[in-house]
Nucleic acid binder design. Structure first.
Length: 566
DNA sequence: GCCGTTTTCGGCCCGACTGTTTTCAGTCG
């Protein structure tokens, strides 16, 4: 199987880890890490670029050496440089890096002094009291490690779905905001950038004095453990395992701190380089010329000071947004308020549930909703009965229109698992892969292409098939799928269920570039789950989508024309 | 290892917190 972008990124991350433990040049290590992030964020397959003999050194941060390594990985599936490093250091040693409190230097010390390369060996050494004797370690560090090793299996390195993180972070934010003397509390970090998963929560507060809020933070009932507590910064772990950092800054630094703690790291580094060239310094307290602060109270002011317009958080990944900002070509990103409809809600089974859902949809400002039945076990008689019920509902409902939708499985052969006559009675026909996610790339791609080309199909459901943290994306030629969708007028679903968020951001961007229309759907099973649309819009914004790229921002009559509906 | 309207060599973002330190290294974000 050809190496995917993620495979290549993993190789580079491993090389970076191993070089770091070896004590190699930190900037060399960073070059590998930057390359890994770049490749991961690329919508096109690097393997395809190699096949087409494109010049990889055109990519920012990829030079002759890394380009050659990419070609090697694509063509041979392995990388000699990594194999050499693995000979010097056991690959299990990388698991030690994920233990909180252990970085490359300490891992190297453990390996050199005690031949430790696994968490089990480390646990044994801790029990025997050997670790505290090592240079750079002590009793406290040993105790920290003992604790971390106990918890390692359950929480370390765990990432939380954005929606799950929101359920923890929003109440905590509200709790902190009630602290006397506190002006504002906001959530920064990858949460603010709407990444589909977050590793921790970064809270930022402005207050007169930091003592009260720090104490209140550490006393929050959900706090399981306080990892660090200083004057302006503290770190805790909640019962759920979610780690939360709180920073307190003066009001005059709020914008600079928000900008800084929203990241991403790669974006911040790039922005600071721009500042550096202008003879300025950017940190979390402001923008400085010499010792004089020239900006800091708002993000707009910070960006203006380094010659840039405001860049929405979701774009801050150093994936071209800085260049676009400099050129005045930032997208006008889609917002939740732009949505006029939702093209996939599971059809409720009772009239009461239907009306509750439509009420909620109205509150979300929607004008139309597609109720979707599964084609599985659906006989023509029942389908007709259901459609009559929807007609009755439409006759009664004030202003909101229900569209009749059906979801049909795409068989391994690419054929649809329902008759054309059944499908022709529905306005929205959603084709979905529900099995055989493991087909080889060519067959999987052909399977989707055939479904997309089917004249009855309105929309391709959750195109990559991923379940975040559970099931990887299908191996697909996604640019080919996206182009086919455009050519056949087939919508690409951005399914906003928190565990799907599928279409992922990188492909949203490809779809935009190729001119393929996207529908952001909640996939809601009940009224409350219409909230999913928020996560869908977040991912769409990460994918640079504007309202005009998203079909369900259109009024219903436009949508009907677009889909050639009566 | 990458990169260059200052440069093909010499740079490469910046600060808080902790613990082990007698002035700072390591980790983290």
């Amino acid at each position: 199987m050809a190496a995917s972008n993620r495979d290549i990124a993993r190789v580079f991350d491993e090389i970076a880890d191993l070089l770091e433990i070896e004590g190699d040049n930190a900037f060399r290590v960073r070059a590998y890490r930057n390359a890994a992030r770049l490749i991961e964020g690329l919508g096109v397959s690097v393997g395809d670029m190699v096949a087409k003999q494109e010049d990889l050194t055109e990519l920012p941060g990829i030079g002759k050496d890394l380009a050659a390594k990419i070609r090697e990985i694509v063509e041979t599936g392995t990388c000699a440089a990594r194999e050499e490093l693995r000979k010097k250091l056991p690959s299990t040693i990388l698991t030690l890096l994920r233990i909180p409190g252990l970085g490359p230097k300490r891992v190297q010390t453990l390996y050199r002094a005690l031949d430790i390369s696994t968490p089990e060996q480390l646990a044994a050494a801790v029990r025997e009291g050997k670790v505290r004797e090592l240079p750079g370690f002590g009793e406290k560090t040993e105790a920290l490690l003992r604790e971390a090793l106990g918890a390692a299996a359950s929480t370390a390195g765990q990432r939380f779905l954005l929606a799950a993180a929101a359920r923890e972070a929003e109440p905590l934010r509200a709790y902190l905001a009630e602290t006397p003397g506190v002006k504002q509390v906001v959530i920064a970090g990858s949460y603010r950038r709407a990444k589909e998963t977050v590793g921790d929560i970064d809270l930022l507060a402005t207050a007169r004095g930091s003592k009260a809020i720090m104490e209140r933070f550490c006393a929050y009932p959900e706090v399981k453990q306080v990892l660090a507590q200083g004057d302006t910064r503290a770190t805790v772990v909640l019962r759920s395992g979610l780690q939360v950092d709180l920073r307190v800054v003066p009001q005059s630094s709020f914008g600079a701190a928000l900008y800084y703690f929203t990241g991403s790291k790669a974006h911040n580094v790039a922005a600071r380089r721009i500042a550096q060239r202008l003879g300025l310094k950017v940190n979390e307290y402001g923008v400085f010329r010499g010792r004089r602060r020239i900006a800091g109270d708002t993000e707009e002011a910070v960006l203006r000071a380094i010659g840039l317009p405001y860049i929405p958080p979701e774009l801050r990944e150093n994936l071209g947004e800085i260049e676009a900002a400099q050129a005045g070509r930032l997208p006008d990103l889609v917002t939740p308020e732009d949505l006029r409809g939702d093209l996939r809600v599971t059809a409720p089974s009772t009239r009461a549930a239907s009306e509750a859902l439509l009420d909620a949809a109205r509150q979300h400002g929607l004008d139309y909703v597609a109720f979707v039945l599964s084609a599985r076990d659906l006989d023509p008689g029942r389908a007709a009965e259901w459609r009559a019920e929807i007609d009755r509902l439409n006759a009664r409902s004030d202003g909101i229109v229900v569209l009749k939708g059906i979801e049909v499985e795409i068989r391994e052969s690419g054929e649809l698992a329902a008759s054309e006559s059944l499908l022709s009675d529905f306005e929205i026909v959603i084709a979905a892969v529900h099995d055989r996610f493991d087909l080889p790339r060519e067959r999987q791609t052909a399977r989707l292409l055939q479904a997309i080309a089917h004249p009855a199909v309105t929309m391709l459901a959750h195109p990559t098939g991923r379940l975040i943290g559970t099931r990887p994306e299908m191996d697909l030629d996604m640019p080919a799928v996206i182009r086919a969708a455009r050519d056949h007028g087939c919508l690409l679903e951005l399914n906003a269920q928190p565990e799907r968020i599928d279409l992922p951001d990188v492909y949203c961007r490809v779809a935009k570039d190729e001119g393929a229309p996207i529908a952001i759907n909640s996939g809601a099973q009940n009224a409350a789950e219409l909230e999913n649309l928020t996560w869908g819009v977040g991912q769409a914004r990460r994918g640079w989508l504007e309202a005009r790229d998203v079909v369900n921002t259109r009024p219903l009559d436009h949508l009907r024309r677009l889909l050639r509906l009566p």
